[in-house]
Design a protein around this nucleic acid. Structure first.
Lengths: 324, 324
DNA sequence: CTGTTAGCGCTTTCAG
DNA sequence: CTGAAAGCGCTAACAG
């Protein structure tokens, strides 16, 4: 079913058909109706590929993500894909497997679809490919990736500030022998550094533990190793998932949270508020994040100053830090 | 940058360019190299839209989902999108908001992209639109949606069988006053029915509770209401999320799981194995599910018998059912 | 193996 | 407001 078929059946030209399906084109109500009728009779529907082939901006947005099953990423993707749909944008999802071998190739793949823009979550593309996107007129927005690249739009949450909040809370609770557990990704290391600095400033010297992927089991392993070897009274886990694993195995080992060990997480995923945990954590403002992304996508095409947004984080106080 | 530009620079015809980028086309190594060189110098990349516009099958697969942030859906989507990428298929993701107003419109939207196939998870499209897909030569595969429609490929897990397993386990544990908690979606109701039947067969008459969305909070609410009103000794929650919420608030209310109440979930999401829960549940074989989907996508085009797959489920025994 | 020649389905000037 | 005509970038038959 092509526009031609519809035109023939409606007894008009194919331009007329095109026009009735084009927002704000000039067609008389009469022909519009005839076309519409013919179209629905024939089950015609615009071919977006051919449509895009002409000049118009595509409605496809490439989304490069990874670790989708993680509560944190899942929440993000959910919100993002809903927002995209609402703006009449379609989401071309590429799920990089965790040890993102060649991100460049994946972005390249996305570019082949002549997308309107690319949103990158949870992986870091090399600077060269970013430049290439921009050269191709495809804005690229990096979420929570710090990059030196001056071309990409970047939206980051204030990881350092959040980590500081976490460390300070622990200090205020009287922790003198804290651990910081992370799984060594770039954005996690930023949190580790900032927390370490905050602890130092208060004269306490945290033990650093950093290993493996960002999973519940990793937090679990951290607790097993750390509690056996050290006399720990507080933990900043740079991810809720890590924190939950940590808490559970600490409890299995007979430690009480928060009485014996205070724990602070990061993200405020849904699980953090579950009654078994009531985790004190740092809230990522998902809605603001998505809002910023959408704003970046809405910008007019053409050469523009890249957008640099940083979102503040806040502590959400629940029950895994000792009161005093 | 078009194939034409590359051709000019390499001093060949545009067909030569096309051929070097087509798997298994006949080009001499010499021209292939020259084209490749010119292409990379120019930063050329195939335009998939135009490519598809010709005859060839698209590599786009439409995925219609919803509730992406739910651990269960997140796990699925993660696996599915990885599998697609691995097969060189791209994923056009449409996230229907929960109360899926007009699924038809969304499928229609997907169809506009001339996808190779559509995979539907977690919403149920009307029969009419399914027929339309098939009429358009776009196979549609329905995951865990029972439908009378004879055209769609369907892949379902044996919900009834799984529910029976759950009920039988509870009976074996000696539960005489069980509840079944669900949140009233179609596939959940199938589980409710099968479990009810299994209980009846053993001469026990379960209390049915069915309300709200499939969330942790719903399970929590169920526990609050049911435990206040009835003397419950077992619960089959038709979703892990429901089960987890149920367990947590049961414990807050002073009931011990499994000593006072045995609980069985459904799905075996990652959280089910967390140490705070160790939930006995029914395992959904995600890999098999994905495997079946991919198999459906791989099928040759053209008129074919729809594929009907049903996957068996199994009980995974952990620690929320009383031993005896 | 290679170039030439038609399209694929749609949008968009440009005249009428 | 409407139709005719010229592409958009690519692939595929068809001769050489």
């Amino acid at each position: 079913m092509t526009a031609e078929d519809v035109a023939r059946r409606a007894g008009v030209s194919r331009s007329a058909v095109s026009r009735t399906f084009t927002e704000g084109a000039s067609v008389s109500e009469a022909t519009r109706l005839r076309v519409l009728k013919a179209a629905s009779a024939l089950g015609y529907r615009v071919n977006r590929l051919a449509q895009r082939l002409g000049r118009e901006r595509s409605s496809l947005v490439g989304v490069l993500a990874s670790n989708l099953s993680t509560p944190y990423m899942a929440t993000h993707l959910d919100a993002l894909s809903q927002a995209l749909l609402q703006q009449n944008l379609q989401c071309l999802l590429i799920n990089a497997v965790d040890g993102d071998s060649n991100v460049s190739r994946l972005i390249d793949l996305i570019l082949e679809f002549r997308v309107r823009a690319i949103v990158v979550i949870s992986v870091t593309p090399p600077s060269a490919i970013i430049r290439e996107c921009v050269a191709n007129g495809v804005p690229i927005v990096l979420v929570n990736r710090l990059t030196e690249n001056a071309h990409a739009d970047t939206i980051v949450t204030d990881d350092a500030g959040g980590a500081r909040l976490a460390a300070e809370r622990l200090i205020k609770a009287g922790c003198r022998r804290p651990v910081i557990v992370s799984s060594a990704t770039a954005s996690q290391m930023r949190r580790v550094e900032a927390a370490t600095a905050a602890f130092s400033k208060a004269g306490v010297d945290p033990i650093l533990w950093s290993r493996g992927p960002s999973r519940y089991e990793t937090g679990s392993q951290a607790a097993r190793e750390l509690l056996a070897a050290h006399d720990v009274d507080g933990a900043f886990c740079v991810t809720d998932l890590l924190a939950l694993g940590f808490i559970d195995t600490a409890r299995v080992a007979g430690r009480r949270v928060p009485e014996d060990i205070s724990v602070v997480g990061f993200h405020d995923t849904p699980q953090a508020s579950w009654l078994s945990y009531r985790l004190t954590t740092i809230r990522q403002p998902v809605d603001d994040l998505i809002g910023a992304i959408m704003r970046a996508l809405q910008r007019k095409p053409g050469p523009r100053k890249p957008l640099k947004t940083v979102l503040p984080l806040e502590l959400v106080e629940r029950e895994t830090v000792r009161k005093r």
